[in-house]
Nucleic acid binder design. Structure first.
Lengths: 228, 228
DNA sequence: CGAATGGTTGATAAGACTCAACTGGTGTGG
DNA sequence: CCACACCAGTTGAGTCTTATCAACCATTCG
């Protein structure tokens, strides 16, 4: 990980791109710029580790991050595949509790790191800000809810279908944010099963696949699959 | 549902029992008592419904509440089996978003209902209170995390073992908070599979079962089961 | 007493996992 | 520059766990 040292103007620009900070005044943005760090991560670097202290709020600007657990069995289980712009570790920072999981980059990533202190400082002039952050936490709660909803009693093929619909809510072309075996892990499937589900969807004429690119050629058919 | 009308003193006593409110001053407790409702629910009553507006914070004092979803397939999926003392619907209230799930009593329940307005009023003199509530939300996030961790790639028998260990962390005797088929649902199992898992644990000499009462007779063996 | 419900047990089937083999692409070192 | 190892992905064959379906028992409640 390298800490970049852009001037405040550039930093402010980065900060302005984060939805959470959009409502801040110019002065507050500057304050934030002066008290935050822009970090460039390589592939496979850890941003935070399970059980570590949550002193820093991370904001993902570019790249994909996996939030995962080491299971007692030695395997890993991916809980989230986080895409920008997103907060990372917000729950731990707000509550002051240790991270419940690991965060690791899946490619090069650009991140704003924000000290807990700085965040609380900002809260003084922006009392509604924690609520916004909490909104993010609530979304994560909902994502979990959906994961549980999906992984209980749904076939491999419908899990894949739901996933594609969720990452391509409007368009019909997506690039998978991670290698297929990691997606499989996230969906609670073995790579082989994921592969077979893909094949089955292709044979049904619902999607086409080229490497990591997925095209949904028949969206309504895809939606119909998860009815069954 | 009946709204009870105890005098303020009794109400204050109820309120004092809630960990979240323990740090409040006597005056604040009285304010809370005057602006909250004590509700008595019968079995199978809904406390809130999916998509409903989150205007009220509920605090479960007595009884068990199921938080569950209606799946598109028509089945239901239990996300939490909530035991007192616990907050209900705190995420929705804090963020002002609709409930993501249903809350229904599984037996007679006693609940404190707190207006969103009242809660925010209280926040003025107790700025750290939202953070405490958020702590509760964080716990729920962790419970989800564990559910996902458990339900992916763990056998029926170890799911049951984990569940027993979690509801009886210290003692060796517990009463199931709900009928077996509901526990099974929560664990992502069919009633038949749950029953078979129980039998298997009994035959291993790890537990004994009498109706809804479970005795853990060999805790370390139970812990060993979830290693495999 | 009869119906309804929760729980148990048995037999069967379906689905995903496991293991093994094979492909194609990438990168490394002689 | 080529041989080689390595990894992600795919495909096939067999196994195993759990869901499903059906029957049955016990209890509760009209």
């Amino acid at each position: 990980m390298k800490t970049l040292k852009p001037n405040d103007e550039v930093k402010t620009k980065y900060i302005g791109k984060v939805p959470l900070f959009r409502s801040l005044s110019q002065k507050e943005k500057l304050f934030l710029a002066q008290n935050s760090f822009i970090q460039a991560y390589e592939k496979n670097e850890f941003i935070f580790r399970e059980m570590g202290e949550g002193n820093t709020l991370y904001i993902l600007l570019r790249g994909t991050v996996q939030i995962f657990l080491h299971l007692p069995s030695g395997n890993k289980k991916i809980l989230h595949l986080v895409q920008p712009p997103s907060l990372l570790a917000e729950g731990a920072v707000l509550t002051g509790k240790p991270f419940p999981a690991n965060g690791q980059t899946m490619g090069e990533c650009l991140i704003i790191a924000l000290n807990r202190q700085t965040l609380f400082e900002l809260t003084k002039s922006n009392p509604q800000m924690p609520w916004n952050i909490m909104g993010g936490m609530f979304s994560r709660l909902k994502e979990f809810k959906e994961t549980i909803e999906n992984q209980t009693r749904k076939s491999a093929i419908s899990r894949v279908a739901i996933y594609f619909l969720s990452i391509a809510p409007n368009c019909c072309q997506v690039v998978l944010p991670a290698p297929k075996k990691e997606i499989a892990n996230y969906l609670g499937l073995r790579p082989e099963s994921f592969s077979r589900a893909l094949r089955s969807l292709i044979e049904k004429g619902v999607i086409t696949v080229k490497d990591n690119g997925i095209s949904i050629s028949n969206r309504s058919a895809l939606e119909r699959i998860l009815q069954e």
